[in-house]
Simulated assay, not measured.
Amino acid sequence: MSYPAWQPWGGQPAPSMLASTADRERAVDVLRAGFAEGRLERGEFEKRVERAYSARTLGELSLLVADLPQGPVPQQPAVPMAFVPLARQRTNDKAVAAAVCGGLVFFTAGLTGIPAVILGHAARGEIRRTGEGGDGLALAGLILGWVALGTWALGLLSLIVLAFALV
């Protein structure tokens, strides 16, 4: 088996980060394991070990062990966690709608309270099921919706009591 001369594996450009001595030793360990398992002949093994010790970049090392088990684990450059962008969690659309309807109860005399409650409950169920974000928005919509509905119920009850008191 002959190894291609410095062609990027999988057609991808080879990483150009400089290899450390530890990186070279890890590649040689993978080569030794491949030789011990009978995956490499002695001549191929010796040629690859020689290339590993003379390799300058991680890309060159990954080419040498790419076709062996326990092949190269892509090395990520060491970046402080402060500079790594956090993955943003998707916000549930119904939670946003519940919060909007809940916020509008002040401007619609409480009429958007019913959609706020319905959307809030639906959103919280979806959030628990899917792990999406927006639980706080759904809860805010629920609270504002229930407050609006409670205010309407209290107002209607007061009108009924007042009507019977006047009769």
Rank of each mutant, 00 (worst) to 15 (best):
3 Y>V: 09
5 A>G: 03
7 Q>R: 13
9 W>Q: 07
9 W>E: 06
10 G>E: 08
10 G>C: 04
11 G>N: 09
12 Q>C: 01
12 Q>E: 07
15 P>M: 11
16 S>C: 03
19 A>T: 10
19 A>E: 07
21 T>E: 14
22 A>P: 00
28 V>Y: 02
28 V>M: 03
29 D>Q: 15
33 A>E: 15
34 G>P: 02
37 E>A: 14
38 G>I: 10
40 L>E: 10
41 E>D: 14
45 F>H: 11
46 E>W: 15
50 E>I: 05
54 S>W: 14
54 S>E: 15
57 T>R: 04
60 E>M: 06
63 L>W: 06
65 V>I: 15
71 G>C: 02
71 G>H: 03
72 P>C: 03
77 P>C: 03
83 F>K: 02
85 P>D: 04
88 R>V: 07
93 D>A: 14
95 A>Y: 09
95 A>T: 10
95 A>C: 09
96 V>F: 10
98 A>E: 04
102 G>F: 09
104 L>E: 12
104 L>D: 12
105 V>F: 02
107 F>G: 14
114 I>C: 02
120 G>H: 03
125 G>C: 04
126 E>M: 02
127 I>Q: 05
131 G>C: 09
134 G>K: 06
135 D>W: 10
138 A>R: 04
141 G>Y: 11
141 G>M: 08
143 I>N: 05
143 I>W: 07
146 W>N: 07
147 V>C: 04
151 T>Y: 06
151 T>C: 13
152 W>I: 11
152 W>V: 09
164 F>C: 06
